[in-house]
Design a protein around this nucleic acid. Structure first.
Lengths: 305, 305
DNA sequence: TCATGCTATGAGTTTAACTCATGTCTATGT
DNA sequence: ACATAGACATGAGTTAAACTCATAGCATGA
């Protein structure tokens, strides 16, 4: 944290959400899950807090975790302090208003942005959103031409290599391609290597035609890759749906299939990922970046992975 | 900090003390001074907060800094949240009680510990303190024999090399010797090198007789060091007082003369510091370390430099 | 117009917080 | 009684946030 130290209070403040979660669950493990960190991290944070205060807040006996008297007192007061700050946060965010026209790629909108928009509109109810699609363009040698009209949207969420003339961009994540399929595709087959998988149909994204070649090259399979491709689709969301139906192997950006991988709809028959060198960006004019609603969107998208 | 991110609220919590200081002072610079960090650090923290919320909290025009409407709202609410947590902290610390017998070296007690005890007794009013002196022993080849009775004190603050049999220790800081004197000692002389300083009387600590030899060696002056020493004292606090009176050059641990250096009572005629390899430790039995009052003392001493 | 006193910012460093892997303990079920 | 599972603790190593330092930029007032 710091070379010098602030008052003790400031250190306690930062731990309160962790302590509160632990107190509510009566379990470091479950608290960790809620917070998206590991059990060990919670354990250490609580230890620190206990040492800072010179108190024992939890009694540990094997698997059993319980608040002590002091812990109970703290948890009650902590709750009200947290409530105060949460309300404050909502009130402040509620004061951010405006109209936000977001341009984004169809697949990105559907498979990634939509579920995040929900939380955003809840946090910033006074911001109204207008979502429109913009095209991606990889035909011109990865030069990231803006083939959509920057003045027609306030911000764009798109893929590219990071240079947009006269526009400022914020990188959300790198593009990583993942080889996936539905379990029904393989049937009883037990592929041992990537080469074994080449017998299955491959689903092609028609505006990223080189993807499979690039993939084959990255995994040293170029000479084995059949040239025929019978199934091709204009958008990733179509490729995804085809994969879900078990129509073939798909090569999809990890950022678009997080949900499908998590819930098991799709899986990696043999892990074979590679970076494309592209990245997903939020792009806007400098003027737009100065708008509170725009930085609010950026922060929101940056913090909910 | 984290690979994953907690809820936004937790990030806001940690900034509140910084924001509050900035709001109170109407100045990042003064807030930084209060917090013991740099101006740039405050500037960045406030920027972060503004981006997280999607709001402008301060209006900056050159040297002029003023809260915006949103900033004013936040500052009011932040104050009450901080108050809540501060009161809570006091209440919890107030519940830590007990008797604490601290054994420490006379000079360390007077020149370092005393000013820290004040804040400690305020934070932990229910802990009663009994301060006694213990001897240091460097005669036995730096073997850190415990030549005080560990059972007669709960914790000891002492100097050594870090190994106390059957006791656990916490290192507070390394021992660094600093060459200092009062301005009156030099008169009109303008020493250009350490060698020029050797004409002045040297104040000797009688239980650390080797100090000057060690110092001379560290600065490659051994062959020039006169052997005579007319002024010697049993304790550092005496050496210090002699130096304050302009009686000669003194070689003192930095930790004991922070105040004198800061307020200009003493200064370094020519910077000539060196580490002794000793360190200042808080030492206690494992049983004592488990006492809340003991860890409370450790935390307190660790955080107020 | 220049000096002064503030904030902003780029580059590099430090440190607290985290992950990962493993150890240990308790409760529970066979 | 013993094995197993499930929870917290902890050592070692890594990451990323927060900090420092140094400097640029900008208003204000002499």
């Amino acid at each position: 944290m710091s070379r010098h130290s602030l008052s003790i209070t400031s250190q306690i403040l930062a731990v309160l959400p962790v302590f509160d979660a632990a107190a509510r669950h009566g379990s470091f493990t479950r608290a960790a899950r809620e917070l998206g960190i590991t059990q060990g991290a919670v354990s250490r944070r609580i230890q620190n807090l206990e040492e800072q205060l010179g108190l024992v807040l939890f009694s540990r006996q094997g698997k059993t975790l319980a608040l002590t008297q002091d812990g109970l007192l703290l948890s009650q007061k902590a709750k009200s302090a947290l409530k105060l700050v949460e309300d404050l946060e909502h009130e402040l965010k509620g004061s951010v208003s405006g109209q936000l026209r977001i341009g984004t790629l169809p697949s990105l909108a559907n498979l990634w942005l939509m579920q995040r928009i929900k939380g955003f509109t809840q946090a910033y109810p006074a911001i109204s959103i207008d979502l429109v699609t913009i095209p991606a363009d990889f035909s011109a040698g990865h030069k990231d031409p803006v083939n959509w009209d920057p003045s027609s949207v306030d911000v764009a969420l798109t893929v590219g290599r990071g240079s947009w003339s006269a526009l400022e961009s914020y990188r959300i994540c790198e593009e990583e391609m993942v080889l996936v399929c539905h379990s029904s595709l393989l049937g009883d087959a037990q592929p041992k290597s990537l080469r074994d998988l080449l017998v299955f149909p491959r689903l092609v994204h028609s505006t990223r035609l080189g993807s499979w070649d690039y993939w084959a090259e990255a995994h040293k399979l170029s000479s084995y890759l059949p040239g025929d491709t019978s199934l091709s689709f204009e958008h990733f969301f179509m490729v995804l749906e085809a994969a879900r139906q078990g129509l073939g192997l798909a090569l999809l950006p990890s950022v678009l299939i997080e949900n499908d991988l998590e819930d098991g709809t799709l899986s990696e028959p043999i892990p074979a990922r590679h970076m494309t060198g592209n990245a997903y960006y939020m792009v806007a004019s400098s003027a737009a970046w100065r708008r509170p609603a725009v930085t609010a969107l950026r922060e929101h998208l940056a913090h909910k992975p």
